[in-house]
Simulated assay, not measured.
Amino acid sequence: MSDSKVQSVVLAGGGTAGHVNPLLAVADELRARQPEAKVLVLGTTTGLEADLVPARGYQLWPVPRVPLPRRPSVDLLTLPGKLSAAVHAAEAAIDEIGAQVVVGFGGYVSTPAYLAARRRGVPVVIHEQNARPGLANKLGARWAARVGLTFEGTPLKGGVVTGLPLRSEIAALVTAREADAAGTRVAAADALGLDPTRPTVLVTGGSSGALSLNTAVAGAAGALLASGAQVLHLTGKGKDGPVRSAVAHLGGAVETGRYQVREYLSEMHLALALADLVVARSGAGTVCELAALGLPAVYVPLPVGNGEQRLNAAPLVTAGGGVLVDDADLTPAWVAQQVPALLGDTGRLAAMAEAARKTGVRDAAARVADLVEQAAGEGAR
C-alpha cells in the first residue's frame, strides 16, 4: 500500500453493472482508507448508476451519454457537440472537489472523464474489466498514470493485473464461506426454500437473461432431477413463461421447489452460497465472482459482440476451473448428458472448485486503490 491517502477523487463508469459494481467497490475501499475523502461519481441519469450510486451514499454528477460510433454513421456528425458538453461536465466535477485523481472503468462517461482530466492536468487511473478492452479505455490508456487489468494479456499499455474489484455482497460471501461454508449454505437454502443437502445447479444468463441457456436447461430438466439434483433457474426479466411451460410436466418437482424458476434474484449471493455448479454466460463479473468463490461452472460465451466473453473465461477454463461450451452446442441433449455426470463426479467437481479458487482474486479493490494512491502521490509531487 502506498503512503499517499486520496483526499478527493472522481470516478467514472456507468451504463452497466459491469462498470458500476467495480467502481463502487473501489470507492468503498478508498473511503475506508480515508473516511473524509471527497468522492464524486460521474454517470448518466438513465443508467444503473442513477440508482446504485446514491443508494451507496455517493454523489452522482450527471454527464451526458456519449456513445462512440464504432463505424461511420450519422452519429459522427453530432459527436463533437455531445462530447464537448460531456467533457465540460466532467471538468466541472473535477473542479468542484479539486480532484487529485480521475479513475475510469470504461463505458460512455469514461471518455469525457479522461479528456477532462487531461485538460486539467489530473492523473488518470484506468481499470479494464474485459480481456478485450473497450474504446474508452483504449483512448485513456494512452496517457494514464496507472492501468489495472482484470485479466492477464489484455492489450493496454502499462497494464498491471489487479483482478476485478468484487461487489460488497460477494466479498462478504467469500469471507462467510471461508469462516463457515456449511452454515452459509444452510442459511442460503433456508432463505431460498431449497434443500441444503441436494446438489444444486444455478442457471443464470445475467440481468437480461439468455434464451439459449433457458431453452437448453429447461429441456433437460427431467434428467437433472433424475440425478437427484435441484435447480435454481433465473430466466431474466420477462423470460420465465417459456421455462415454466417447459417444466410444467414435472409437476410435483416444480411445486415443491426442486426445480425453482425465478425471473431474477436480487440476493444473488444467496444463490451462489448454495450452488455446486453454475451454468452461465462468461461476462467478466460472472467469471471473476465465481473464481473468487471457487465455484465450478459451465461457461457459455455470448455469441455476439467482439468475442471478449470467450477470452474472459479462457484462463479459468485452461486452469481447470470451468467448462467452455459454444452457444450453438448447448442443447438439451448436451445438458442432460454432461451436467448430471459432472455433478455425480464429486472428485472432479472438487478439483474444479480448487482450480477456480486458485485463479480467483479476492483483494482486487485494494489493488486498484493502491494504484489510485500511487497516482495521487505522483500527481502531488
Rank of each mutant, 00 (worst) to 15 (best):
P54W: 05
P54C: 03
A55N: 10
A55C: 01
A55H: 02
A55I: 01
R56Q: 13
R56S: 13
R56Y: 05
R56D: 07
R56W: 03
G57M: 11
G57I: 10
G57T: 10
Y58N: 12
Y58Q: 09
Y58G: 09
Y58R: 08
Y58S: 12
Y58A: 09
Y58F: 15
Q59M: 08
Q59K: 14
Q59W: 00
L60F: 14
P62L: 06
P62N: 08
P64Q: 07
R65G: 08
R65T: 08
R65E: 13
R65C: 11
V66P: 05
V66L: 05
V66S: 04
V66K: 04
V66Y: 03
P67W: 09
L68Q: 10
P69C: 07
P69I: 06
P69L: 11
R70P: 02
R70S: 11
R70G: 10
R70I: 00
R71P: 01
R71Q: 14
P72S: 02
S73D: 05
S73F: 06
S73H: 02
V74T: 13
V74Q: 13
V74W: 15
D75E: 14
D75A: 14
D75K: 15
L76G: 09
L76T: 08
L76K: 00
L76P: 01
L76H: 06
L77P: 02
L77M: 13
L77H: 04
L77Y: 02
L77D: 06
T78V: 12
T78R: 15
T78E: 11
T78Y: 00
T78D: 08
L79V: 07
L79D: 08
L79C: 13
G81H: 12
G81M: 00
G81A: 03
K82N: 14
K82D: 12
K82L: 14
S84P: 00
S84D: 12
A85E: 13
A86Q: 05
A86F: 01
A86E: 03
